[in-house]
């Protein structure tokens, strides 16, 4: 059974069919990328899957359970985690605290215990701290743990967001343009990180503009154009697909020829 199944998903914004009839599946440990020209509906699709938007049509299921339009904090409990295209960092908290918030569900916080700083509450905080430090090490930010998050560089914030998303111990991770705005070195770091996470059995759904990155690490690619799925398959197949080439270059496939996306 696939971990994530999306069927016939669609949403309209004031009469415009932003996304229509999109469907695909993601298996555990698999990296599936959603690509398409600007305005194709990739982020809208992400927002529907992650509960930020209510889809008008279609269904999303996680491990066989229908979770269409479920609020984000309940999806988090079911093991779905995400990052954002325009970073959503807790700017006024430290780098370490950002990741510690990611452990929120494992902490099972109790307000009264926290107010009185009971031994149980302190123990939970200490455990969270240790787990968060390990994650910061994994993304190479352990030396910045006590800095305020707003002082980090853009590329570092991208990695911090991934660390926070991983703190949930997700079964599926949605990454919305994790390499956008990053330089070549930072992109490569994120590339390794994503591959490494997938190897540990987490399913990954990726939206990314960096075609080299997508072609290199994806097991499977879904191509959107004007809100509809126009192609799907392995990286090699998709990059040769005439419909995909037309969507990207806006010319007849015969004239464009071969491997436009290679």
């Amino acid at each position: 059974m696939p971990l994530l199944r999306v069927e016939g998903l669609g949403i309209d914004f004031g009469g415009l069919r932003a996304v229509d009839n999109v469907g695909f599946q993601v298996e555990p440990g698999e990296i599936v990328s959603v690509i398409g020209p600007n305005g194709a509906g990739k982020t809208t699709l992400f927002n529907m899957i992650s509960g930020a938007y209510q889809p008008a049509r279609g269904a999303v299921s996680l491990d066989g359970e229908i979770v269409t339009g479920m609020v984000p904090h309940l999806l988090a409990r079911r093991g779905l985690s995400r990052t954002f295209q325009n970073l959503q960092i807790f700017q006024k908290m430290t780098v370490l605290e950002n990741v510690m918030v990611g452990c929120h569900l494992q902490e099972r916080a109790s307000l009264l215990a926290d107010l009185f700083s009971t031994p149980a509450s302190r123990k939970r905080s200490a455990e969270t701290r240790a787990a968060a430090l390990k994650l910061l090490e994994r993304v190479g930010l352990d030396c910045a743990a006590d800095k305020e998050a707003s002082s980090l560089s853009y590329g570092a914030l991208k990695r911090l967001e991934i660390a926070r998303a991983l703190a949930l111990e997700p079964r599926i991770l949605l990454l919305d343009e994790p390499a956008a705005g990053c330089n070549a070195v930072e992109t490569e770091e994120i590339d390794h990180l994503v591959a490494d996470v997938a190897k540990s059995g987490v399913a990954i759904l990726l939206v990314e503009h960096d075609m080299k990155l997508v072609m290199r690490i994806s097991n499977h690619i879904v191509v959107l154009d004007r809100g509809e799925k126009i192609a799907e398959g392995r990286p090699g197949e998709v990059s040769r697909d005439p419909k995909v080439i037309e969507a990207y270059l806006g010319v007849q496939p015969k004239e464009a020829g071969g491997h436009a996306l290679g």
């Binding site: 992650s50 985690s81 959503q88 807790f90 700017q91 908290m93 929120h104 926290d114 700083s117 939970r124």
Partner: peptide, 20 residues
């Protein structure tokens, strides 16, 4: 504490707090 971090997190970004 865990609750305090949750409160400060939703102050900075509600959507990110919901997501975690």
């Amino acid at each position: 504490s865990p609750s305090g971090r949750a409160l400060r997190a939703l102050h900075d970004s509600e959507i990110a707090a919901r997501t975690v």
